[in-house]
Simulated scan of single mutants.
Amino acid sequence: MNTVYVKKVQSPRLTLWLALGSVYTLWGSTYLFIHFMTEKMPPLYMASLRLSTAGLLLFLYARITGTPVPAPKQWISAGIIGVLLLTIANGCMSLALQYIPSSIAALLAALVPLFIILLNWVSFGHIRPTNLSLAGLVLGLMGVSLLVQPTGMGVSPTNTLWLGVGLIMIANVSWAVGTLLSSRLTLPPQLISSAIQMLVGGLVLLLISLLTENVNLTSIGHAPVEAIGSLVYLIIFGSIIGFSSFAWLARNASPQLVSTYAYINPVVAMLLGWAFAGETLTSASILAALVILSGVVLITLGRK
C-alpha cells in the first residue's frame, strides 16, 4: 500500500489536472451524444462500435509508437477491467438513456463516488476517507437529490424511469469495482492498456448485441447522419481521449479525487441537455449544481 501511495504523490501535477479536466468536460458531454447516437439505432450495437473502433485505433497507435505487445496475464487483467467499465457499465448506461433524459442519467451516475469510497473503505483498501472527504460526499449527494426531485428537473417518476434508474445502479457498482481494481491488477503500459480495455469491452458488447438486438455487422450502414456524427465524436473525445484520461487517473490518483468527475459531469450534462435536447433547467437545478460543486471542492481538499 505504501508503494502505491508514493507513486500517486509523485504523479506530474500538470498531467493530473489535464486528465481531470478532460474527464470533467468531455465525459459530461457524452450523455447527450449517446442519446443522439442511440435515438434511432440499437444502443448496445452502437456502443460496441464506438468502443471497439476506438480500442483498435488506440492499439494500432500504441504499437506503431513502439509499445510492446503485453504478456497474456496483462491482457487478461486489462480485459477484466474492460468488461467491468465498458461492457457492463457503459452498456447499462447506453440502455438507460433509452428510458430517461441524459441529465437525469448523469445525475444518477454521480452516485459512483459513494460506491468507490465505501468499497475502498470496507473491502479493497480498508482506508477510511477523511472527514472532509466524507463531508464533500454528503454535500454532493445532497445536490444530486435536489436535482432528481421533480421540481429540480421537471420529470415525474414512471415505470420506464425506474428501469433506467436500475440500469444505472448496476453500471455504478460495476464502474466502482473496475476503478478500484485498476490499481491492483497487473496491467500493461497505460496507452495499450486503455486500448485493450476498449477492444475487449467493445467486442464482448458486440457479441451481446448480436444475440439480443435485431442487428448484424453491416447495420451501421442504415444509421442516420446524426447517429454517425455522434459516433465519431464519442470515439475520438469520449473514448480515445476521455477514457484514456480516466484510465490514467484510476492508476495514479486517489479514489476520492478520481470520483469527483461524477459530480462535474451532471452539471455539464444538465447544461447541454437544456441547450440542445430541450431538457428542463430550473432555478432549483442551478442551486443543486452549486451544491454539487461545493462537494467537489471538499472532496478535493480532503483527499489523502
Rank of each mutant, 00 (worst) to 15 (best):
F243M: 12
T280R: 13
S230E: 09
G242N: 06
L298F: 13
N252A: 05
A288T: 05
L199Q: 12
G242L: 01
N265F: 04
A284K: 06
V225L: 15
A277Q: 12
A289N: 04
L298M: 15
S239M: 05
A262W: 02
T282Q: 11
L231R: 05
L234D: 09
P255C: 07
V297K: 14
G278A: 07
Y261K: 01
E279I: 01
M270L: 15
I228M: 13
G238K: 07
L272S: 08
F276Q: 05
L290V: 15
E226K: 14
I236K: 03
L199E: 08
L211N: 09
I235V: 15
S193V: 01
F243A: 01
W274I: 00
L272K: 11
A277V: 01
I292R: 10
A288Q: 05
L206D: 04
A275Q: 14
L281R: 12
S219D: 08
S245V: 02
I235L: 10
I240G: 11
S285Y: 01
Y233A: 01
S244P: 01
L249T: 02
V232M: 13
S283C: 00
Q256P: 00
L211V: 08
W248E: 00
I192W: 12
V297D: 03
P255S: 10
G278Y: 04
M270T: 15
S245M: 07
F246V: 02
P224H: 10
V297Y: 15
Y263A: 08
S239H: 06
A223S: 14
L281V: 07
N216F: 02
L290R: 02
A288V: 04
S239R: 07
M270Q: 10
S285K: 12
S209P: 01
F237L: 13
A277E: 11
T260P: 02
L206I: 00
W274N: 08
L301H: 09
E213H: 09
L231H: 03
G242P: 06
E279N: 05
L290C: 14
A288P: 01
V297I: 14
I208N: 08
G302D: 05
V258S: 04
L231P: 04
S219I: 03
I220T: 03
I264S: 10
W248L: 09
L199N: 11
L272A: 11
G242M: 03
F276I: 08
E226H: 10
T282F: 05
I235A: 11
E279L: 04
G202D: 02
V215G: 11
W248A: 04
I236N: 03
N265Q: 14
L210T: 05
A269C: 07
S239D: 07
S239G: 09
F246S: 12
S209W: 06
L290Q: 05
V232F: 12
I286N: 02
F237C: 06
L217K: 01
A262Q: 09
V267Y: 12
V258A: 12
I228P: 06
I241A: 13
L205E: 09
G295C: 07
L234K: 05
I208Q: 07
Q197P: 04
A275M: 14
I292F: 09
L203T: 14
I208F: 13
T280G: 01
L205T: 06
F276L: 14
F237V: 04
I228D: 00
S294Q: 03
G295D: 06
A289W: 00
V258P: 00
G201E: 06
G302V: 04
L211E: 06
Q197V: 03
T280K: 13
H222K: 12
A284L: 10
N265D: 08
I228W: 15
